[in-house]
Design a protein around this nucleic acid. Structure first.
Lengths: 211, 211
DNA sequence: ACTTAATTGTTGGATGACAAGCAAGTGTAG
DNA sequence: CTACACTTGCTTGTCATCCAACAATTAAGT
């Protein structure tokens, strides 16, 4: 008998499948256009064409440009969490967790369209003083709470200096990673390898207790 | 007899005076509009109105929007050099120079319109993949060469670890400051004081040789 | 010194490009 | 055949840019 599990692409899809697929296609297309040509170039026309649809569909699906961008940010943010969340970082000892997080972050900096589009949208929000700034602030806040928890854990374990202000340290690490992300968008040719090594060494030397 | 020294505002100004003054007024107005309302809001109309002129003047003086922005960046950059250059940092011992530079930078982060406008323009260039990115890259390059020189000096003096990659360290410091600048534009309410202290402590602990 | 012509600084209406939003339409899946 | 995904023509608004007129300044001529 033929294959009973319809895993292969069926010719006939339900309405819900079509709808969800086109929404995903639009978000993916928007990501690619932004990463490749910039935020301003991401018009409904460009996004629709890239996704293989007309210019009107995105308006219909997301209500407005603002709606599309908000959905896109949420989508990109979820993706980013996937990448940086699935490595069991939060189960490691504190110091090791911080170092691993920084290491992972720097290893795929600017490697994928998703990360680049995210920071380009962030840059656009900063440039235009858009209200979306609050969304990015909240997102950074979450990352920094996570880093702060790692630092506090490391201090409880005796591996990280107790004099260190965990809150400020988390914000410092977060801002360093943000700065490197932006810098890599300004100068795509920069060599991240020595930066990664030096950053890790710096964090270790300044965070670790000296017995 | 009447006053012979015409120091007071004359009613009659020379053409050169009018021209230079209006150019300066336009650049200052552009800075204020960008810092206050964002890059997109900085139309010829808004800038002209703020400076007390018509919308046509900026085009006439700078040729095009692009020309205005380029002139503005050059102007802002010169201003920034003034602020961070006049403290004799380059004459200090290396480690102290790095620490002083970071300290000075963080003390007036986001305090003035000029700095904010500069980073908002940078953000706009990143968001739009504008060719101006190269100008910002060059500017950062200069700052990083300066920081690298400080690190090398500190190593020659025996105050900074010799294992440290001076080039990477300079890029790391520069990116940290960039990241903090962007972060302060995303979240203007952030408290910079603990960050400053923690950053200085971090740099000192990781850079300084342990005797 | 005064007048007048040439130059330069400044204005604001007209134009065209471009993109978002809308609404009426077409086609296709269930 | 009907509900829903999707398209297309149109309207509206915004902005940079062009340009011809206007105003202030300088230079020349008498």
């Amino acid at each position: 008998m033929a294959q009973s599990a319809p895993v292969e692409p069926r010719v006939r899809r339900t309405q819900a499948e079509r709808r969800d697929e086109s929404a995903r296609n639009l978000l993916r297309a928007a990501t690619e256009v932004i990463a490749g040509q910039g935020v301003t170039a991401a018009t409904f026309e460009a996004i629709g064409a890239r996704a293989g649809y007309s210019r009107g569909l995105a308006t219909q699906k997301f209500g407005s440009k603002q709606g599309l961008i908000e959905a896109l940010i949420a989508w990109l943010h979820a993706r980013q969490d996937e990448v940086l969340g699935a490595h069991g970082v939060d189960a490691m000892p504190g110091l090791e967790a911080v170092l691993t997080y920084v290491d992972l972050y720097l290893r795929d900096l600017g490697r994928q369209d998703e990360g680049r589009a995210y920071f380009m949208l962030l840059a656009g929000a900063v440039a235009d003083r858009s209200l979306l700034r609050a969304a990015f602030a909240a997102s950074h806040e979450r990352v920094e709470r996570r880093l702060e928890a790692m630092v506090l854990r490391g201090q409880a374990e005796g591996a990280i200096r107790r004099e260190m202000d965990a809150d400020a340290a988390a914000l410092m690490i977060g801002s360093l990673l943000l700065g490197l992300s932006i810098q890599s968008l300004i100068d795509p040719d920069m060599d991240l390898e020595p930066i990664r090594a030096t950053t890790l060494a710096t964090v270790r030397l300044s965070f670790a207790t000296t017995p």
